[in-house]
Computed example of a mutant assay.
Amino acid sequence: MPEGHGSAHAGAGRRGQPRRALVTVVGVIVLLIAAIAFANRGGHDSPSTASGAPSGTGTGTGTGTGSGAHSAPSTTAPSGERPVTGKSATGIPSGFAHDPQGAQSAAANYAVALGGVDMFNTARRHEIVAAVHDPAVTPRLQSALDQAYSGDALKSLGLNADGTAPGGLTFVSRTVPVGTKVTAEAADAVTVEVWCTDLVGLAGQGSTNPVSSAWFTTTEKLVWVEGDWKIESSSQKDGPAPVGGDDRAATADEIAGAVRDYGGFTYAR
Rank of each mutant, 00 (worst) to 15 (best):
V129C: 06
S55H: 15
D253Q: 03
V132Y: 04
R82M: 09
T85Q: 00
T76E: 03
T183S: 01
S156Q: 07
V223A: 13
D253G: 02
W224Q: 10
L199F: 08
V137D: 04
A103M: 04
Q104L: 15
R248N: 05
T61R: 04
S105I: 09
G168F: 03
G102H: 04
T251Y: 00
T175A: 04
Q147I: 15
D162Y: 07
G16Q: 08
G158Q: 03
S71C: 13
D45R: 07
H5V: 15
L22T: 06
R124T: 15
I29V: 14
E232I: 02
E185M: 08
G167F: 11
D198M: 07
H9T: 10
F96P: 12
G6C: 03
G64S: 09
N121W: 14
V192F: 10
L169C: 03
D99W: 06
A97P: 08
L145V: 15
P177K: 00
F120G: 03
G168W: 01
K155H: 00
T266P: 06
P54C: 15
G60I: 10
T85C: 01
A111I: 06
R248I: 14
E193S: 04
A187H: 01
G11W: 09
P78E: 05
G86V: 10
V178Q: 08
F265I: 12
A77T: 15
R19H: 08
P177G: 06
G204D: 10
A249D: 12
A21T: 07
L169Y: 03
A165L: 12
R82L: 13
H5Q: 14
L114T: 13
H70Q: 13
A35N: 06
T164W: 12
R41Y: 01
G11V: 09
C196F: 02
A111N: 07
Y262N: 14
T175G: 01
D152L: 03
G62S: 10
G86I: 06
A106N: 02
T266L: 12
T85N: 00
K221A: 14
